[in-house]
Nucleic acid binder design. Structure first.
Lengths: 127, 127
DNA sequence: ACATTATATTCCTATATGGGAATATGTCAA
DNA sequence: TTGACATATTCCCATATAGGAATATAATGT
């Protein structure tokens, strides 16, 4: 294939959850099974749009539908989020480490300041 | 605005990392600063494409460039991945829980089987 | 000034959206 | 069968790609 445009949303979970509305749907389904109209009402979306998003989510295995009856109950398959978690979670330690460095620095600055205060105290309520 | 097409890749980190090549760039930068050509060589990509991807990553704050000189050294700002981590990590417990349930079930099945064996032993090597 | 090297930008094009609107399909109940 | 309701699909359209190729811009060394 000569032309490779933007990766389709159905190519993997990363692309599927890039769309904010689909993340809202996933978040809603985390609390349990829901019908299409339930989802549409809860998220204030139109039914066809919800159906279309659910189709994308189904194609990447993020949700599955139970019951071919009048209502179709969609449920979350959180396992499909695993590749995202496994890719991103190793990075968590980086910002946690830099936060801890900041905390330590702040602690050192504070003890430095109180040492200065004892040597050269200033009146907290200047008149 | 009347028409809202697919969310731009520069709208947030979710959309930026949906592209696999950009994830490769991020993974490479995790090991330290790199110049554009370094990245292109390491990942076997063409330089203009790398520059374009870096532009997207810059616009969402995922990388920053140091030095306006001949070489520009790009470095990762992992903090920008935090929204992704914070969105996805609560789901980790779901599949861990279902894994633990499977493990427990397997354990119960195994002890059940050994109990059956003691009551009704079978020859492991039937001739 | 000039060549060299590094990086960024522009133009091109096939593809893929996502929402609105309308419609089709499917299922149940009387 | 005929409604009534739930869900899926189709068409439209403006927007946004991502890579290839060529070119522009920028900084450095001699």
């Amino acid at each position: 294939m000569y032309f490779m445009a933007r990766t389709p949303t159905t190519s993997d979970a990363f692309n599927a959850v890039a769309e904010p509305q689909r993340r809202r749907i996933i978040d809603l389904l985390a609390s349990g099974e829901r019908s299409v109209n339930d989802i549409a009402a809860a998220l204030k979306m139109r039914q066809p749009q919800v159906s279309k998003h659910l189709k994308v989510l189904r194609e990447v295995g993020l949700v599955s539908a139970r019951g071919e009856g009048q209502h179709r109950l969609y449920s979350l398959n959180s396992e499909a989020l695993r590749p995202i978690y496994e890719w991103v979670s190793p990075y968590e330690k980086y910002w946690r480490e830099s936060y801890e460095r900041l905390e330590q620095l702040l602690g050192r600055l504070q003890s430095q300041l109180s040492a200065d205060d004892r040597e050269n105290p200033t009146d907290p309520v200047a008149h």
